[in-house]
Simulated assay, not measured.
Amino acid sequence: MARPKKRPDRAQLLTSAAQILDTGGNPAEAEAVREALTELTRAKARDDNPTLSLWTYPETWRAAQQAGSIPDLIDEGFKALLAGKFTPKKAPRSSGGGRATFSGRADVDRQQEVTAYIEAHADELGWAPSPRQVAAAWLEYKFGPYKRT
Rank of each mutant, 00 (worst) to 15 (best):
A136W: 00
I20P: 00
L82Q: 04
T87C: 01
A63S: 15
P131H: 08
R3K: 09
G68R: 10
E31C: 01
G126P: 00
A36T: 08
L13F: 05
S16P: 02
T38N: 15
A32G: 11
A17S: 04
D109C: 02
E39F: 06
K142S: 02
A128V: 13
I118R: 13
G126S: 03
G98L: 00
G126T: 06
S53P: 12
I20H: 10
E76G: 06
L21I: 04
H121D: 06
P50K: 01
I70G: 03
V33K: 03
S94W: 14
A28F: 07
A83D: 10
G77C: 02
K90Q: 14
S53F: 15
L81F: 15
R105A: 06
F86W: 07
A17M: 14
R93L: 07
S53N: 11
G84T: 11
D109V: 06
A135C: 06
W127Q: 05
W55G: 00
K90Y: 08
I70V: 07
F143C: 01
L54H: 01
G68A: 07
L52V: 05
I74V: 09
W127V: 07
Q66T: 01
G144P: 00
A45E: 03
D48P: 02
T87A: 07
E113G: 09
D123L: 09
L21V: 04
S130Y: 10
A28R: 14
G24L: 00
S95L: 13
A2T: 11
E119I: 03
S94F: 03
K85W: 03
P71E: 11
A32I: 00
E113H: 15
W138P: 05
E113W: 08
K6M: 14
A32C: 12
R148P: 06
A17P: 00
A136F: 03
Q112A: 11
L139K: 00
H121S: 15
K79Q: 14
R46Q: 07
G126Q: 00
P8V: 12
L14M: 06
T56Y: 03
N49M: 03
A45Q: 13
T38Q: 14
K89M: 14
A116T: 14
I74C: 05
L139R: 01
S103I: 02
A120V: 03
G68Y: 06
F143S: 01
T149I: 13
P145L: 08
